[in-house]
C-alpha cells in the first residue's frame, strides 16, 4: 500500500518553496530591467574595449596613429 503523507508541514514547505522561488524570479527580472534601463540611458559605465581613456568616454588615439593622419 502506498504511503500518502498529507500533512500541514508539507503544505508549509510547499508555500515556502514557492514563495522563495517566485521571490528569486522577481529579483532576477528586476535586476534585468534595471540593467536594461541603465544601459539604454547611458549611465556612467566603463566599457572594457582595451581603448585607453583619459576620461570616461574620451578615447585616446593609439600610439603612432595620431601623427600619421594626413
Amino acid at each position: 500500500m502506498a504511503i500518502r503523507a498529507e500533512h500541514e508541514i508539507h503544505r508549509r514547505r510547499l508555500s515556502r518553496n514557492l514563495g522563495v522561488g517566485l521571490t528569486l524570479g522577481a529579483f532576477v527580472v528586476l535586476v534585468f530591467l534595471l540593467t536594461v534601463v541603465k544601459i539604454t540611458r547611458g549611465d556612467p559605465m566603463q566599457g572594457f574595449d582595451h581603448t585607453p581613456e583619459s576620461a570616461p568616454g574620451v578615447a585616446q588615439p593609439a600610439a603612432g596613429q595620431g601623427s600619421a593622419a594626413p
Binding site: 500533512h7 500541514e8 508541514i9 503544505r11 508549509r12 514547505r13 508555500s15 515556502r16 514557492l18 514563495g19 522563495v20
Partner: peptide, 13 residues
C-alpha cells in the same frame, strides 16, 4: 503527533 512548527513562507514575511 507531529507538531506543525515548520515555517511557511508567510512566517518569513
Amino acid at each position: 503527533t507531529a507538531d506543525p512548527k515548520e515555517a511557511g513562507f508567510g512566517d518569513y514575511v
